[in-house]
Every structure is written in structure tokens, then in C-alpha cells.
Amino acid sequence: MPRELCNHEWKMINLQSGFIVTEKCINTNEYVDYFSTEDAPSMQEYKDGDKYWIILGADQTIRFELECQLCGQIINYDNLLGLMNCTGCTGECHLNNLTQVARDNKILVYAALCYQNKPNVTEYLTLDQLKALNKLYNSRLASRDKKILIVSSSLRLLPKGCRGDIFKDVGLLSEEEPE
């Protein structure tokens, strides 16, 4: 079946466990984060030119691709850090407003965050990536009156001050989420 006509049925494939490693340069206050498949990511700080990186954290997560069971199309999500639900901030934030309007209609909104592999360069999921992810999670719902809406994190007004809750496994060794 031609892909453009396919009513895709997505399935997660090539699941890989790993860590979201977040680093900060203490000279420039720049941040980067990336996916690591190491068994235990190094927490050792290091120097790189004029930058001095410290490791802020390594939280467990997964990486995956989606494959359509009908047409075989594969969509890669190597750039997806995780999903975040807005916990409310300012009324000027589009994500905050969308979350509240949607909630009244039993639609749960989540923002898809991408890894920031380079300082000050923000990436976003493509429309195809967002559409496939939405279809996958909506297909798993059991409640008929519930919907999932996964949107681009570009809707956030203040990414650095965002109070959203990112779905990743923080502090698993302690069983309790750190403050």
C-alpha cells in the first residue's frame, strides 16, 4: 500500500534502554543533554577547550523507533528526550493554555522534548514524528472518552523556566523522586 494512503498502525521497535545525560558548562552556563547507552554513564567532569563540563544527572529512559504494521514505514525517534505534561505556569504560555482548554474536553496534552546536543540549539519533532506518536498512544487507550494530544515543545513560552513534569526515571535507586 502506498504510504501516503496508509492508515498507519504503529508499533514500537528497536527499544533501547539508556540514560538521559545532562551536562552544564560552568564557564558559560550552557547546557547539553544526550542519550547514553553506557551501563553506567560517567559522572566525571571534563574540560573541552574553554568549556568545563559537569554532569548534572543521568536519568534512565528508553529510545525507540515506530514501524507501521501495514506499510512498513519506520520513523526514528533518536532525537526524542521524552514527553512532558504541563503543570501550569503563566497564562501567556501556549502550552499551558492548550493544556487547560484540552483538559476540560478530556484531552491530555503532552509536549515532546528533544535532546539538546549542542548548546543553544533547540530541536523539535517533525510533524510526521508527532502524528505517529499521537496515533500510537491513542491506539493504546481503553477509555472511549479520553484522547491524547502530543504537541511540539515549541509551544512552551519559557523553556528554561518551564515547570513541566518530564517522563523519565529519576533517582530510581532511591525509589523516591529527589526534590
Binding site: M12, L15, I62, F64, R140, L141, A142, D169, L172
Partner: peptide, 11 residues
């Protein structure tokens, strides 16, 4: 693991 539920959980 919440990431486990995200990967394999079903409604």
C-alpha cells in the same frame, strides 16, 4: 520504571 510503562503499558 515509568519508561517501561510508556513503552509496554496498555489502556
Amino acid at each position: 520504571m515509568v519508561s517501561d510503562l510508556m513503552a509496554f503499558g496498555k489502556g
